[in-house]
Amino acid sequence: MWYNDIRPDKDLKNDRYSLIMLDSRKNHFKRLLTDEDKKRTIENLIRLKEGLVEKVPAKKVDDNLLLCSWNIKNFGEIKNRTAESLYYIAEIINAFDIVALQEVNKDISEFKKVLKLLGSHWKHTLSDVTEGSSGNNERFGFMYDSRRVTHSGLSGELVISPEMMNENPIIRQLKRTPSFTGFESGWQKFSIVSLHLHPGEGGNGDGPSDKEIRKEEVKLLMKIMKKKMSKMSFEDRNMIILGDTNIYKEDEDIVELIADKGFVECGGLKGKYTNTSQSEIYDRIFLKVQDYFKIGTDAAGNELGDVFHLFDYVYKNEPSEIKKYHKLMLKHKGNPSTLTSDAKFKTYFNRYWKRDQMSDHLPVWLEIKTNSSVNFLKNTLKKF
């Protein structure tokens, strides 16, 4: 991680340190962090780092790989997201090896800032923006630690061909075109499909309901996945589907469409709420993999995967913490005259401020075992 911007000004010398958190040219590259901001950021980073060490497995050379999926709310579109928050986003990403990002918007300036904070060994892929109002100017991104994992060279988008559709299709393409990317680490070679399905639970007048649209998206996705996997070489068939599925608790019939094609949800994530309100299981990871591809397990044999509850460490729902952001909330709120009491600040902080700074979704992750040599040798020995 690159922490120069949170050094005291007296430590900064023009010929020694470069800075990342600077405003635009039209604002004369003004510094984005005051001394007050720096101290608060450092205190929270220490707490966040301790939480990540406690909740996320350590990275082990030649043994494991940590995969994360995170919908960062309107990443690049929210204009009051602070430099402080970008530090927290980068610190969370840094705890993993591959992070699939949803809701990356057309403007990638914040995406680039986070990459610079992570350091030059962090690489990325980005899909094109899905055009049209339904695509919401969104794209998919991956950030990955090139010391631990490499991009296999496979990269593209999943587009539905006309031949795959019904005679009177509900939809012709997925609302946001999913990305399809290959990676390699140790013994493992695998591909990841990152998706963001149609949201909502309501009806749409005479048209199909939100759930019907989402279900049709999954049906089309499974069709194209079946076709692609049948043409892949054996070693490429480790397939992971992840992202913001917008699948609600009552949408188990949609989950079954995925399970029927042989995809299994990570046991460590199954049934765990992933939105900030802790009410829905939107963000999921499904796998269809070969025998030597294993998810890490704990001493009891439970698969290692979980939701990282970032608001236990930053933007905490405590009066003393909320008070630290009063001035910033007044500065960024459209009508600051409505913030007239601690109770009003608290409501705005929890409903809008912290979600705009970080996200309304929490990161989900799992551990992949990258060394299958023992299982391979044991199985090979049995053949003699």
Rank of each mutant, 00 (worst) to 15 (best):
S127V: 08
N168W: 11
L158Q: 02
M143Q: 06
S152H: 05
S191L: 11
Q102K: 03
G132A: 01
E138G: 15
R139T: 07
S155L: 04
G186C: 07
V149W: 12
G202E: 01
M143R: 08
V129Q: 13
G205E: 13
T177K: 09
G182V: 03
S179H: 06
N168F: 13
G205C: 10
R139H: 10
R147D: 03
E167Q: 15
S127N: 07
G205V: 12
F183W: 00
Q188E: 09
M165S: 03
F142N: 13
H196C: 08
G141H: 10
H196V: 03
G153K: 08
G205K: 09
I170R: 00
L197A: 04
H198G: 06
D145N: 08
S185Q: 01
N204H: 14
E103T: 15
S209E: 03
L154N: 02
E201N: 06
S127Q: 11
K123E: 10
S194L: 14
E157G: 06
G207K: 15
K116V: 06
R148Q: 10
M165C: 07
R139M: 13
L197N: 05
D210W: 00
T181A: 04
I108L: 09
L197V: 00
S146Q: 11
F111C: 14
S179N: 13
G156S: 04
R139D: 09
K189Q: 02
D210M: 08
F111A: 14
H121Y: 06
G141Q: 12
P178F: 02
H121S: 07
R176C: 11
V114A: 09
H151A: 05
I171G: 11
L174R: 05
M164A: 08
F140L: 02
H198R: 15
G203P: 00
N168D: 13
N137K: 15
S155M: 00
N168G: 05
D107V: 11
L117D: 07
V114G: 05
L195H: 00
S155T: 02
E131K: 11
I171S: 12
G182F: 04
T125E: 12
P169L: 03
M143C: 14
H151F: 04
I171C: 08
M165L: 12
F111T: 09
E103G: 12
Q102M: 10
V129Y: 07
K123C: 04
D145K: 01
L117N: 10
D128P: 11
E138R: 10
P169S: 04
K175S: 12
H121F: 03
E157A: 12
K112V: 10
G205M: 04
K113L: 05
T177Q: 05
D210I: 04
P199G: 06
I171W: 09
M164N: 15
T125N: 12
N136S: 07
I108A: 05
N136P: 10
E103Q: 09
N136V: 11
K106I: 15
E131H: 13
G186D: 07
S133C: 14
H151Q: 04
E184T: 02
G182S: 02
D128T: 15
S191R: 14
S134A: 15
E138T: 11
V149C: 08
P162F: 06
S120F: 15
V193R: 03
D107N: 13
G202S: 07
R148F: 03
N166T: 09
L154Q: 03
L195R: 03
V129G: 09
P162G: 06
F190P: 00
D107I: 08
V104K: 15
K113Q: 10
